[in-house]
Write a protein that binds this DNA or RNA. Sequence first.
DNA 1: GTCTATAAACAGATAGAC
DNA 2: GTCTATCTGTTTATAGAC
Lengths: 242, 242
Amino acid sequence: MTEDATLPPPASGDPARPSDASSAAGERTRATLVRVGLDLFGRKGYDATSTRDIAGAAGVNIAGIAYHFGGKAGLHRACGELVAGFLAERLVALAAGDPERDAALSSDEAATVFEASLTGLARFMLAQPEAEAIARFMVREQMDPSPTFDILYERLIEPRHRRLCFLWARAVGEADPESEAVVVAVSAIFGQVMFFRVGRATALRRLGWETIDETNVEAIVKTLRDNFRAIVAAERSGRAAK
Amino acid sequence: MTEDATLPPPASGDPARPSDASSAAGERTRATLVRVGLDLFGRKGYDATSTRDIAGAAGVNIAGIAYHFGGKAGLHRACGELVAGFLAERLVALAAGDPERDAALSSDEAATVFEASLTGLARFMLAQPEAEAIARFMVREQMDPSPTFDILYERLIEPRHRRLCFLWARAVGEADPESEAVVVAVSAIFGQVMFFRVGRATALRRLGWETIDETNVEAIVKTLRDNFRAIVAAERSGRAAK
DNA sequence: GTCTATAAACAGATAGAC
DNA sequence: GTCTATCTGTTTATAGAC
């Protein structure tokens, strides 16, 4: 599982790297180290993961980490950049919507787009094997943010969360999409998905599941959808009553 | 904050300890080490926390950890036992209900008790300063369970989650409180609370808060309550329509 | 029960050969 | 670009004085 993930687009010409080093072999080594690092950092945490473990699992010499990334911290940062880039692209596809057209959506359309984003996110983050390492890495950065968290927040979390708030405000007829009530509501709804990642150990034991496969995730998605629709309906009727 | 928490009941006569060692000084040392260990383990994780840090912050000699707990792992286990005992007791008080009387509750009463448990849990876990270390420690065990997780799960998480499932089933008129739909629904609702602990870094930035104080937590609780009521109402009407 | 001193293993980083 | 060998610091655990 660590070995054959299909995560990183090997990206032969990487403009983010300012320095030298552009041979095909070096690029392959870097990509392998980042992929393995993402898995191990997410699985055990930054401090619990030794550079020897990473180099060993990647089949790369230990000195290669310092050579290619400047050190352990540099590799960690590169993992964050991979996550931000890969996931931002993927989530836009999952949401199936063009952010620039959101402003033209009707209330019902906004609710539909929000729901599609929510269920798409759940299906991807909970059932896709390639998302496991990513989700673990991100949750860990949430728990105790390192310098890498800023990359994730600014390039991934903030814009996606902001868009959901915009959609939510439009769906329920709230004028200010950045109001406290909207941000809290969207966060709470997102938390329903997050539980099945963070509290996975509890969820699996309570449900007698061995893992969250594509069958199981549909049971979760059904509940998420039902809850979302219930909350939207109540919010709308609450506002109409005023 | 590490120094003056009022967490551990110093428990002079501890029956859980099979061995010798029962002087007042030794008991104080053990209690201090557990309290500091809980804070640091939760804040930085098991591997990132050195026994020197713990001993230093506790004002105890490094060798004392091995002497009193057998080693770092033993101290971690003792932290888990403290959390399980303290929180189980506290949550029963928060729920304001006697588990043995749950079977006699009406549907509306069950919903009320569930709601009180949910909001009480949120207020305690999100705003009480003494709960910060506990919550961090528990989330970390969820993320990558150590042997200590079994203590938390069996003595704290499972019975509390099971009771919420019972209340939820009764509230919405579901016969089987351990059915997949019930367990998933309760987990999702709990996830709404969990987000503001796990995703705290995101929530604070998005809301412009410096911390979640008692004022802020009321904004969260209001959303949690509204969402809970909306979901209950929708679930009931969905069943009535059949 | 608490302390000092130290052992034995391991961490990340680096120098230099190839 | 990759390798071996090694440096330097830190880790947990322990032995023995008090």
